[in-house]
């Protein structure tokens, strides 16, 4: 994927962020806050689980272009996944950000952040959502 393509995917997911908003029926969702202590990104993540499957994800908050776009992309990829699949995807995503081995195929659009390791200060932005939802899913399998 070239840089123009990456940029346009990121911008599209920032300007028209998918799944953004507070759920109407928030009682059906588990909520967790994710923030970056070193900067100002701050979102609330809402996840609806049913029979071991992620049925829906919503989020709301204030964060930078990298944090919001990655939240949009990864949340879209996780909806409909089993907890096991979700954790596998998230694990691969963290590996990519940390420049470890990962399954490129599995990450689809999230590959737009494959060079994020070159900007260490923005790694926390790119993992704002992934860290939050990983914590939320802990022990739910």
């Amino acid at each position: 994927m070239d840089n123009d393509m990456k940029r346009s995917i990121i911008l599209d997911n920032y300007s028209n962020a998918r799944n953004r908003g507070i759920p109407d029926n928030s009682d059906d969702y588990i909520m967790i806050n994710s923030n970056n202590q070193s900067c100002i990104d701050n979102i609330n993540i809402y996840v609806k689980l049913k029979d071991g499957v992620i049925e829906d994800i919503k989020y709301e908050g204030e964060a930078c272009v990298i944090a919001i776009s990655s939240t949009s992309i990864i949340s879209s990829m996780l909806i409909g996944k089993t907890l096991k699949e979700a954790n596998e995807l998230l694990g691969n995503y963290f590996n990519m950000i940390e420049e470890k081995e990962y399954d490129k195929e599995l990450l689809g659009e999230a590959n737009v952040y494959e060079d994020m390791y070159k900007q260490p200060s923005r790694k926390t932005c790119a993992t704002l959502f992934a860290r939050g939802i990983t914590n939320l899913l802990k022990g739910k399998e």
Partner: peptide, 21 residues
């Protein structure tokens, strides 16, 4: 534009500002 993105943009031109609360 989120304030931190604005600050990162200005830094490209060596303009130091504060973003946040």
């Amino acid at each position: 534009v989120f304030s931190q993105d604005a600050a990162i943009y200005l830094d490209k031109y060596n303009i130091c500002v504060r973003a946040g609360n």
